[in-house]
């Protein structure tokens, strides 16, 4: 499958501070890739370079075969959607007026407004003035605006950070449907469950470098330590190591019919992140 994004040896330096260092990755058409990392790890800088808002210090980045230095062209903008923490809405106008503007900017029929508002569960709220909306509703309007023109490639920078779990889940379902229709999604998040739920591949970004990049399942397999937790009839839970020692102990419990349940100790993406970077994945 063709690569939509190709990044080679990308680096960005602000003053003396390296925001990105030797970053390499490709994104295939139809993929959902997640960039995971704490604040300041380089996630937003990567998105800004890939959307033509920032020029790299060195290295190459191209999207749809267009070099990053030429990403400010209208034909490229028509194919992408960007939702970031510095996206804004016109506070004195209604949701409808905000979306009408973007329908016309992208030459999209205005009936599309209703489709995207339904997608973010705001179908009955379009007359509301934006300044009266909660943070979560504002975030959903921004997402609706980003989806208006059905972009081929969607950049989402912490898309559900302001949303409650129910709304986050609804947005995830919407994004999955969009992805099934062929939209490639580049997502940054510090929410491991969001990454697990949505992403085909995840990259761990720390101090401007990609520490790991693979499918979540493959990462869990790679970092699994083989231990199991055994719940016993006396209420205790014991953790058994991999290898003959653990197997023997398990055999003892089983032969005495003391076992209630056995669970594998699969690491979460959060555990792996800590293991690789030595840091918690904090906001």
């Amino acid at each position: 499958m063709e690569n939509i994004i190709e990044v080679k040896s990308l680096a960005k330096v602000f003053g003396n501070q390296a925001a990105l260092e030797d970053v390499n990755f490709n994104v295939k058409k139809g993929e959902i890739i997640g960039f995971l990392g704490p604040s300041g790890s380089g996630k937003t800088t990567t998105i800004k370079i890939l959307t033509g808002q920032l020029l790299q210090t060195s290295g190459d980045a191209s999207v749809f075969g267009v070099k990053s230095s030429a990403l400010n062209k209208g034909s490229y903008r028509q194919r992408i959607g960007v939702l970031s923490d510095n996206s804004g809405l016109y506070q004195r106008l209604s949701i409808e007026d905000n979306l009408k503007l973007y329908c016309d900017l992208y030459h999209v029929p205005r009936k599309r407004m209703d489709e995207v508002l339904d997608l973010v569960n705001l179908g009955n709220e379009k007359k509301k003035i934006v300044s009266k909306l909660s943070k979560g509703m504002t975030q959903r309007v921004l997402l609706a605006r980003t989806l208006l023109h059905e972009p081929d490639l969607l950049f989402l920078d912490e898309p559900t950070s302001a949303l409650d779990p129910a709304n986050s889940q609804q947005i995830h379902e919407g994004l999955r449907r969009l992805n099934e229709k062929g939209t490639t999604i580049f997502l940054t998040t510090h929410d491991m469950s969001e990454a697990e739920a949505l992403c085909n591949r995840v990259a761990f970004l720390h101090k401007g470098k990609i520490q790991l990049l693979d499918e979540p399942k493959a990462l869990r397999r790679q970092f699994a330590d083989g231990t199991v937790n055994v719940e016993l009839k006396n209420g205790k839970v014991v953790s058994l190591p991999a290898g003959t020692e653990g197997a023997d102990e398990l055999y003892q419990y089983m032969s005495k019919n003391e076992v209630v349940s056995i669970h594998s100790n699969e690491p979460t993406l959060g555990d792996i992140f800590v293991q690789v970077t030595g840091k918690e994945l904090l906001v």
Binding site: Q53, G74, V82, S87, G88, Y102, L105
Partner: peptide
Amino acid sequence: EKHTLRGLMLSPAS
């Protein structure tokens, strides 16, 4: 100030 100019700049409008 309200970050709406960025939205216009990222749109196909020249």
